[in-house]
């Protein structure tokens, strides 16, 4: 599964970067969202992917039965998802305010406006 996932993540990265290289700030936001998804999947795929073995311990047991998925990357990704949301909100509002002040949605134009 990992090779397929690796390809998909690569494509996701490519899409994200392509969008971030656009001049329109709205597209930049879309790129940012794609990028955080891509990054989360990157960690997920690098850790190896396991089917049907969530890192949970059955009731009464001291350890999970057999091999389970690696819980550490999952913990990392969980916080990353929430933080990415926070960052996205921040970016979206920042862009909104910038648009209100500068009245331009073109990054190249914003660069010239020194306000």
């Amino acid at each position: 599964m990992e090779p397929i996932m690796a390809l998909a993540v690569g494509l996701l990265y490519a899409a994200a970067i392509y969008m971030m290289l656009r001049r329109s700030i709205v597209k930049l936001v879309i790129g940012l969202m794609l990028l955080s998804n891509a990054a989360n999947l990157l960690i997920f795929a690098s850790a190896g992917m396991t089917r049907g073995a969530p890192p949970l311990i059955p009731e009464g047991a001291m350890a999970p039965e057999g091999l389970v998925a690696d819980p550490l990357p999952q913990a990392l990704i969980l916080t990353a998802i929430v933080i990415a949301f926070g960052v996205l909100a921040f970016a979206v509002v920042l862009i909104h305010r910038a648009y209100e002040v500068v009245k331009a949605d073109d990054l190249d134009q914003m660069k010239e406006t020194d306000t």
Binding site: V9, G10, I17
Partner: peptide, 14 residues
């Protein structure tokens, strides 16, 4: 640029 970076990320995962 985007495709090169994406391709590298794929290699990196592998």
């Amino acid at each position: 640029v985007a495709l090169l970076t994406g391709g590298l990320m794929t290699l990196l995962i592998m």
